[in-house]
Design a binder for these strands. Structure first.
Lengths: 218, 218
DNA sequence: CGAGTATTGCTTACGCTGTAAGCATCGTCA
DNA sequence: TGACGATGCTTACAGCGTAAGCAATACTCG
């Protein structure tokens, strides 16, 4: 069944499997990913993957972990005060999630509890604390920023033509919209007021950070 | 195969199918839902469901639509100014989502584009506008509130023992936590500072609403 | 170098999934 | 009474995740 010279190993590793899975999801979307197809992409049978990954769920967890770490990894130390650092984190997280839209539903659903994730959380809290934020406030802030970013990005990739044009979005059904019944929605389409994801996200993050800054009195 | 008196109809309707699906997900979790099991719950074969629902995806969309409408439906007119109305909406949405945690991943993933959803959006915009908010700001606000609420609620049900104890959460692995390596996390566990979902959500919503109020100069 | 062992991938198989196609039986109306 | 549309059942198929066992390689030690 294999087209390798009968006996030669493909040299799989957990990393290669994760890489291939990420590529496959980016190319064909999350629902299309199956162990058989992933194996085929690697020139290998499905069951061979199970030597490197305990099961499909663990594989997906690994993908989430990897994507999340790219967001944290790009961040340095909070030299210019905690506020800009938190804003940078939010934008880095959004970029990381947008880079792999297929993984986003997974990231939204599965809590990451890997040792690396714990280390990142610890780093977060330590940085915020040395910058003068109380511990509870710091934890609240990171959670609010992260959950908002995930929620916002979910809406963003769900609304854009993204990976599969299943449902017509607001723009596409603008023509069918009765201006008499939906005057405000019609005006939204016409003026495009409030339809810019980038500026909306930036503004909301600014508001959140400013709000916590005011509350912490910093 | 059926235990009905051979020929008697079960009297299915789309509504009954959706009801049963919601019940089943609440009881056994989203991944456990299959057309066969849902049919069994209704005393019917799987294929019978397809007379009332085009396919499983449409069924899931219907569930999201239904849950979302409960959040909007409970809301009256914004009599006391738009700010408390928006806060009420946020809390109502969170309650509606928490009431059916199994549907939450669906609600987060599938954009709702049903005519009812459009009507609700129109109502939202109209109410905010008559309360003095510019159109673009109103749309930004509703989107920020909705996406944050979804993101926050996702984290909430993902972290709590919820429906299936798959992964140990922070509390459960508190014992394995090395206080030397994770001083801040250890302190979080001990003091429970920043671990209250209710107050965190309320506070964040207050901050967001206040921020948009300040920006709109209202 | 040869022998033993651990690692890796393949084969087969099972129960489950969503759903297409066609049939049987019902309640309703002419 | 007869025809008809609506409803549910039966059968079937391709695909899924993965458990169990086998074959062949690469590595380690004498």
């Amino acid at each position: 069944m294999s087209d390798r010279p009968s006996g030669a190993k493909a040299g799989l590793t957990r990393e290669k499997v994760l890489d291939a899975a990420l590529d496959y999801i980016d190319a064909h979307g999350l629902p299309a990913l199956s162990m058989r197809k992933l194996g085929a992409q690697l020139g290998v049978e499905a069951m061979s993957l199970y030597r490197h990954v305990p099961n499909k769920d663990a594989l997906l967890d690994g993908l989430v972990d990897r994507v999340m770490q790219t967001a944290f990894g790009d961040l340095g130390e909070p030299v210019g005060g905690w506020a800009p650092w938190v804003r940078d984190f939010a934008h880095a997280l959004r970029s990381a999630l947008l880079a792999h839209p297929g993984v986003l539903p997974l990231a939204a659903t599965r809590p990451v509890n890997s040792p690396e994730a714990l280390r990142m959380s610890e780093r977060w809290l330590a940085a915020m604390r040395t910058a003068g934020l109380p511990l509870g406030t710091a934890l609240d802030l990171v959670n609010v920023i992260a959950t908002f970013t995930i929620g916002h990005t979910l809406a963003e990739v769900g609304q854009t033509p993204g990976h599969e044009g299943t449902e017509p979005d607001l723009d596409q059904r603008a023509g069918e919209l009765d201006p008499a019944e939906f005057p405000n929605l019609t005006e939204v389409i016409a003026t495009r007021a409030g339809l810019d994801f980038d500026s909306r996200f930036t503004q909301a993050i600014d508001i959140i950070v400013a709000g916590y800054a005011a509350q912490a009195g910093v």
